[in-house]
């Protein structure tokens, strides 16, 4: 019924507890780059304007005050040919301290940053990451450098398009037309899609 009146143990326990918390606090690595947009938020941002067409780019290139073109290709490609006044930042160097400072100033001055690569694909993923890191003043160039070159040289053919997400051909018509010279009869068996559900490691069930 008596309780231990000596309370030194409490002190020791409390100090150990505090020490663990303090040690823990020191183990936290400071994240250098923090995503401002988590994937779920980013998916909504994608609906907003995030790309400029090559036609628009021609006008933007003239405006050197409020627009910056960033060439994401390698130094070699950049040396070979670039858009006027473009700055070269190869993809692996995007997050270098110096470059981040550049992006910060551009963001502060609300300068529109246009990322471009050889095609839009090359610029898309880096753009998305920079956008998620909070640089919302960035866009990508549709068609990329290749399309711009053709456009400037006036070599655009009927088939050239920068809207790569549009179906290039009428699929139905092609498939309906089918083959023209084939003699073999093949039947395409549908591949069965079996989704292997990864076993979810469920947290252990509680009892009491």
């Amino acid at each position: 019924m008596e309780e231990l009146k000596r309370t030194r143990r409490i002190t020791i326990g409390v100090i150990v507890f505090l020490a663990v918390i303090i040690i823990g606090a020191n183990t936290i690595k400071k994240q250098k780059n923090i995503y401002k947009y988590l994937p779920q938020q980013m998916i909504e941002e994608l609906i907003l304007v995030y790309q400029v067409t090559p036609e628009e780019a021609v006008d933007l290139l003239k405006d050197t005050v409020s627009t910056v073109f960033v060439d994401l290709r390698s130094i070699y490609d950049y040396e070979k040919g670039k858009l006027d006044n473009a700055i070269n930042i190869p993809i692996p160097m995007l997050l270098d301290d110096d470059n981040k400072k550049l992006f910060d100033t551009w963001k502060k001055d609300s300068v529109k940053v246009v990322f471009y690569g050889n095609d839009q694909l090359q610029a898309n993923a880096p753009w998305m990451m920079m956008y998620q890191l909070g640089y919302t003043n960035t866009v990508t160039l549709m068609g990329g450098k290749e399309y711009m070159d053709l456009q400037m040289a006036g070599l655009l053919s009927e088939n050239s398009t920068y809207e790569t997400e549009k179906p290039a051909v009428d699929y139905k018509a092609i498939l309906a037309k089918g083959g023209n010279n084939s003699k073999t009869v093949t039947t395409v068996a549908p591949k069965k899609t079996v989704v292997v559900r990864k076993k979810k490691k469920k947290a252990a069930e509680g009892g009491c």
């Binding site: 507890f17 918390i21 823990g24 606090a25 183990t27 936290i28 947290a203 252990a204 069930e205 509680g206």
Partner: peptide, 24 residues
Amino acid sequence: LVAIIGLLYMGYFGWIDYSVLFVH
């Protein structure tokens, strides 16, 4: 109290995945 505080700190420090703990 000790468990609540301790677990929250551990979750914060990344020593334990707080989201998978079994919530009654």
